[in-house]
Design a protein around this nucleic acid. Structure first.
Length: 662
DNA sequence: CAGTGAGCGAGCTTCCGCTTGACTT
């Protein structure tokens, strides 16, 4: 019997189908040893860092079983993921085995779960790569030092129970700084001027937009100017200045990685990253999709070949590609241990009818994205018509149109929503056009949008911060700590979050720097390549950090968290102001004179709707023990109405309104 | 489905990255 160890039980099942009876496949369920949770677990002496690894509780039973099998096994293949963490798991596993297992223990790696890839891997076993393991140890220990040293400092200087870390604190910083940008934003007025012109008949009309005045970018920033422009353009003479035709050929977007799947599901389905991952996990376990925690856009040859067949049969040969289309992984820090997320069987275009609707929705996105990425380019033509208007001043107006010649992958995935097909009448340069009408619209520049799950994950990934397995948990952490709250699916920092962020930026600017992780990754790469030693690398980081910690612990003032005022006087003493404070369980009302006045009350966040169930109470925003917000009735426990989503205006409510007695 | 802040001081909190359940107001 040969023992093969992988990380995921689903992967183990799949492998069992490819390998014969002489192989037993077991899953490690992730890491099997880690630093202890209850203490630092790193002994630091004279620039040497000694980790104290303990077996993780959840995996204890599994590991016992694997250890038993390892004694009987003829060969042991450590087939954990081919990346830094996977190499570390393989090493920890080998450390757990009895010594006699050493000689028969080998490391194998494969990037796709296909029969060919696995057979190939088995033919090329190697030893554990200790450089790669050391890079992981350096990463692990650095994260532990940052997290377990900074957090207690926050308990002392801000409030107990708080946390800081290389990743979560930067995510928080992004949200806080975005809020400041929004606060500093000043809306500017501008006017859009659209002129409709025609060639001969009303059927030959086109609408152009003002872009230039006297060779300069058109600046219509107030009503007076807009009216002046209107007056001139109404009586101006119009001539076609140029007609520019351009062929286009557009390639489809890459197949999904974890990050892009989370982004599209957030934008198209309105899902949180957490929900997307739960649904994807189910699809993965049922065998419908490949592994869902990946940073790679690679595809197995078998998969692209099947896609080609499918596309050719379903849409016609012209939609299929001669050669499979490959995508470059954008992220520098990608480890590409897995394939892109794709359907395991392209012929399964829909899940069985009895499947959950949410499973269907997510699967459909994954299927379409994959099929689209192997479908021919969409081709067509863009047409830009520029029109000159001459009055007292000289104006340029233009419009862009687009026609599609061959829809290609649009047939599967659809077009981007913001590009509409716009067919323009045939005109030629120097041709005269007649004025039909003018529409001017007052507009204002918009402040930057707050982050939602999609844009936050996109930004983190671009900066190389976090991993596919952590994007969703990062968001949960900063919500749970009450550093941020999600309002209408967008993140807003709380007064606590702002205080913590400012404390970290002031005192530990280097660690919450947006480039900190990128620099760390560069050094980890050098360690993995054998060009750098991990212990001195940690020392270089830790020595100045430890000094800074001592200094800040000594000198920094306790941080004051700002309180919001409700604008009402304290209902209890009447002297103080009623304020909204942020406690362990969220917002509550208190008196500004605390501790002289101990007034406290629940903070009720009304949505302005009546309860759809009892019709009497107000719908209020509440949160569960885990920090997730939901909507409930203010009459609880008399009325047990509860909903994850904001209730729509109900029949009951409109009924009440219509029948209001006089 | 009560609790939350300050301070007293015991005993506890906390990181990131791999995995999957066991949970749902």
């Amino acid at each position: 019997m040969n023992l093969v160890i992988v990380e995921s039980p689903t992967k183990a099942k799949t492998l069992a189908r490819f390998l014969g009876d002489e192989y037993t496949i077991e899953a490690s369920y992730g890491h099997v040893r880690d630093l202890p949770k209850s203490k630092l677990g790193v002994k630091i002496t004279k620039g040497k860092f000694t980790p104290d690894y303990v077996q993780t509780k959840k995996q204890a039973d599994r590991v016992k079983e694997i250890k038993k099998l390892s004694v009987k096994a003829k060969q042991i293949y450590l087939a954990t993921d081919p990346d830094r963490e996977g190499e570390a798991i393989a090493w920890h596993m080998s450390e757990i085995f009895d010594n006699k297992a050493d000689a028969k223990t080998k490391r194998i790696v494969f990037h796709q779960i296909t029969e060919k890839a696995i057979q190939h891997a088995l033919e090329k076993p190697r030893d554990i790569d200790m450089n790669l393991v050391d890079a992981q140890q350096a990463r692990r220990i650095l994260d532990r030092l940052v997290g377990y040293k900074l957090s207690p400092l926050l308990w002392k200087k801000v409030r107990k129970g708080l946390s800081a870390g290389r990743v979560q604190s930067v995510a928080l910083r992004l949200i806080v700084e975005k809020e400041r940008e929004i606060a500093a934003f000043k809306a500017e007025e501008y006017w859009d001027v659209l002129v409709t012109l025609q060639k001969n008949a009303p059927t030959d009309q086109l609408t152009v937009k003002l872009v230039q005045i006297n060779g300069q970018e058109a600046e219509v920033t107030n009503q007076t100017k807009a009216e002046e422009v209107e007056k001139e353009l109404t009586t101006a003479g119009y001539l076609v200045e140029s007609v520019e035709k351009k062929e286009f050929s557009r390639t489809p977007p890459a197949p999904f990685t974890t990050s892009t799947l989370q982004q599209i599901a957030a934008n198209k389905l309105g899902w949180s990253a957490k929900k997307t991952m739960q649904m994807a996990q189910n699809l993965y376990e049922e065998g419908y999709i490949t592994y869902h925690r990946t940073d790679s856009t690679n595809l197995a040859e078998e998969a692209t070949a099947e896609a080609k067949d499918y596309i050719s049969k379903s849409f016609g040969a012209s939609y299929a590609l001669d050669k499979a289309r490959a995508y470059q992984t954008k992220s520098k820090v990608a480890q590409e241990a897995h394939e892109a997320i794709r359907p395991t069987n392209v012929a399964t275009a829909d899940l069985p009818a009895e499947s959950l609707r949410d499973h269907q929705k997510l699967y459909e996105l994954i299927w379409k994205r994959f099929v689209a990425c192997q479908t021919a380019e969409a081709t067509g033509e863009t047409l830009t018509i520029t029109v000159q208007a001459k009055a007292k001043d000289e104006y340029l107006l233009s419009v862009k149109g687009e026609t599609i010649k061959f829809d290609g992958w649009y047939k599967v995935w659809g077009k981007a929503e913001d590009v509409e097909e716009n067919v323009l009448p045939e005109v030629t340069a120097k041709e005269k056009l007649d004025f039909v009408n003018l529409v001017k619209t007052q507009k204002f520049t918009q402040p930057p949008a707050r982050y939602n799950d999609a844009s936050l994950i996109k930004t983190l990934e671009e900066k190389g911060i976090g991993r596919p397995s952590t994007y969703a948990p990062i968001i949960s952490t900063i919500l749970e700590r009450l550093y941020v709250e999600k309002i209408d699916k967008r993140f807003q920092p709380t007064t606590l979050g702002i205080a913590v962020c400012d404390f970290l930026v002031t005192n530990f600017a280097d660690i919450v720097d947006y480039d900190f992780t990128a620099q760390m990754e560069d050094q980890l790469d050098e360690i993995a390549d054998g060009k750098r030693k991990w212990q001195p690398t940690l020392a270089d980081f830790y020595d100045p950090f430890a000094k800074k910690l001592d200094m800040v612990a000594e000198t920094a003032e306790k941080v004051k968290i700002e309180v919001e005022e409700t604008g009402n006087p304290c209902p209890k003493c009447g002297e103080g102001k009623e304020v909204i404070r942020l406690g362990r369980f969220g917002k509550f009302l208190a008196c500004s004179r605390f501790p002289d006045c101990d007034y406290k009350a629940n903070y009720i966040n009304k949505t302005g709707q009546k309860c759809p169930k009892c019709g009497d109470g107000d719908v209020i925003v509440k949160r569960t023990r885990t920090g997730k917000t939901f909507f409930g009735c203010s009459n609880y426990p008399k009325c047990d109405f509860a909903s994850w989503t904001k209730p729509k205006i109900t029949a009951l409510e409109s009924g009440v309104e219509n029948n209001t007695p006089i």
